[in-house]
Simulated assay, not measured.
Amino acid sequence: MLHRVQGIVLRSVDYGEGNKIITLYTRELGKVGVVARGVKKVKSRLGAVTQLFTYGDYVFYRQGKLGTLNHGEIIEPHHKLREDLYKSAYASYLVEMVDRMLGEEDRSLFLFDQLEAGLMAIEQEKDMQIVAHVFELKMLAASGYTPVLDKCASCGRTEELAAFSAAAGGAMCSRCKHLDPYAAAVTESTLKLMRLLQQVDLSRIGNVNVKPSTKSQLKHSMRLYMDAHVDVRWKARSFLDQMDKYNI
């Protein structure tokens, strides 16, 4: 069957001599795998549309599990994401989340739009860490792991929220935080920011100014939560950690 879709390239791997298999996240079909034959040749007309992060129109024929790419036209190349090491790493984390957390043909127009908006926000030099955390929260919500942020996840109190517990499922009050020795200490400002990020649309995210201490608490809390609820060893996140470690 012939399919015409709009998609974003999540992954690209070499396949045989001169070919690639690309994973697309599409509006119409969700996540699909497509073989691009001869794409590694210098004069291939499909070379540009199969590059990582590219958003385009794709036409492919599929009879079994994998499709065969027939045609493609670029809507947004996102070439700046491939030219800058940090932008590439953060963009890779976004597409890796979609690739690893969603099943085959798991379709969501909302997540598709949020992914494209997130890639655009990184390209436009919005705060990349904040963009990544917003997208983490979107992906967690889609997977059924939305953290509780407006009350204690243990007792339900809305006062004296002082910790964030991956095990409990969100914020914890000062009375309950002892129940999880691994809970991260957080300020009300950090929890307020998390509640804001949980609601924000990435297509409307602006330039934000967040204190380093708040960003540090946010990063630690999100790491704990992602690692507790999503059993994935993130390649892009590990690469970001290496760049931070060596101040690349």
Rank of each mutant, 00 (worst) to 15 (best):
residue 207 N to E: 14
residue 226 M to P: 01
residue 119 L to V: 08
residue 178 H to F: 11
residue 134 V to F: 04
residue 29 L to F: 02
residue 200 V to M: 12
residue 185 A to W: 01
residue 20 K to P: 01
residue 134 V to D: 06
residue 12 S to N: 13
residue 45 R to V: 12
residue 174 S to E: 13
residue 51 Q to I: 03
residue 161 L to H: 09
residue 241 D to M: 07
residue 138 K to P: 04
residue 248 I to G: 00
residue 128 M to S: 14
residue 138 K to Y: 13
residue 177 K to N: 05
residue 198 Q to W: 00
residue 148 V to G: 02
residue 231 D to A: 14
residue 216 S to A: 15
residue 150 D to N: 15
residue 92 S to L: 06
residue 27 R to P: 01
residue 130 I to Q: 08
residue 178 H to K: 13
residue 52 L to P: 03
residue 33 G to L: 05
residue 195 R to K: 13
residue 164 F to P: 08
residue 149 L to D: 07
residue 192 K to R: 13
residue 15 Y to S: 14
residue 15 Y to T: 01
residue 205 I to M: 14
residue 129 Q to Y: 01
residue 201 D to Y: 13
residue 131 V to W: 08
residue 42 V to K: 14
residue 28 E to W: 06
residue 95 V to H: 03
residue 99 D to P: 01
residue 239 F to E: 02
residue 4 R to D: 11
residue 2 L to C: 00
residue 146 T to P: 02
residue 181 P to D: 06
residue 136 E to P: 03
residue 135 F to Y: 15
residue 94 L to T: 10
residue 163 A to S: 15
residue 196 L to T: 14
residue 211 K to Y: 01
residue 200 V to F: 03
residue 167 A to T: 13
residue 196 L to R: 13
residue 23 T to Y: 02
residue 150 D to C: 03
residue 87 K to E: 01
residue 104 E to S: 08
residue 204 R to I: 00
residue 224 L to S: 03
residue 133 H to P: 00
residue 44 S to L: 08
residue 78 H to Q: 01
residue 241 D to W: 01
residue 202 L to M: 14
residue 147 P to A: 09
residue 6 Q to P: 00
residue 224 L to H: 04
residue 86 Y to D: 10
residue 225 Y to L: 09
residue 117 A to L: 11
residue 173 C to H: 02
residue 156 G to L: 07
residue 156 G to N: 07
residue 247 N to L: 15
residue 211 K to T: 10
residue 156 G to M: 08
residue 17 E to A: 14
residue 245 K to S: 14
residue 246 Y to P: 01
residue 44 S to C: 09
residue 55 Y to Q: 13
residue 164 F to Y: 10
residue 175 R to M: 01
residue 25 Y to W: 12
residue 52 L to M: 12
residue 54 T to A: 11
residue 193 L to P: 04
residue 188 E to W: 00
residue 117 A to H: 10
residue 4 R to C: 02
residue 52 L to V: 11
residue 167 A to Y: 05
residue 102 L to Q: 06
residue 203 S to W: 06
residue 132 A to F: 04
residue 98 V to H: 07
residue 102 L to A: 04
residue 168 A to H: 10
residue 247 N to P: 00
residue 161 L to G: 10
residue 245 K to E: 15
residue 154 S to Y: 12
